[in-house]
Simulated scan of single mutants.
Amino acid sequence: MSKKTEIEKSTAKGKLEFKDCYSLYKFIDALSLLVDEIPLIVDSENNQLVIKFMDPSRICLIEVFFGNLNNKKSTGNINAFLKVKKNDKKSVYSIDIKKSGKQATIIDDLKNVLKVKKNDKKSVSIIFGDPYRLLIEKKSGTLGIIKKNLNYINLDFMDISMSGLNNMQYPTMIKISQKLLDDFFYEAGVYSEIIGLEINNKGIHFTENGVIGDSDIFYESKLLNVCDAPIKSEKSYYSLSFLNLVKPIVSIMEENDTIKFELKTDHPLKVSIKFDKIGAEITYYLACRILEEE
Rank of each mutant, 00 (worst) to 15 (best):
V246N: 12
P248S: 14
I249P: 01
I249R: 03
A229S: 04
Y219V: 08
L243W: 08
S239W: 14
I217Q: 01
V246H: 14
S241Q: 12
N244Y: 08
L240S: 13
Y237S: 07
L223D: 08
P248V: 07
N244R: 09
K235M: 06
L224R: 10
C227N: 08
E234P: 15
S221N: 07
F242M: 08
P248L: 10
I217V: 14
N225I: 10
I249C: 07
K247S: 13
S241G: 12
S233C: 05
E220G: 11
S236E: 03
V226A: 07
I249T: 04
Y237G: 15
P230C: 04
D228R: 08
P248R: 09
A229H: 01
K222S: 07
S233I: 10
V226M: 09
S233N: 10
E220D: 10
S241A: 14
F218A: 01
C227V: 13
I217D: 00
Y237N: 14
I217M: 02
A229Y: 01
P230A: 12
L224N: 06
D228F: 01
S239Y: 12
A229F: 00
L243A: 10
S233D: 08
I249W: 07
E234W: 05
K232Q: 09
L223A: 15
I231K: 03
S221Y: 08
L240I: 10
N225H: 15
I231A: 15
K235E: 13
A229M: 00
V246I: 12
L224K: 10
F218K: 02
K235G: 06
N225Q: 14
S233F: 14
I217T: 02
Y219A: 14
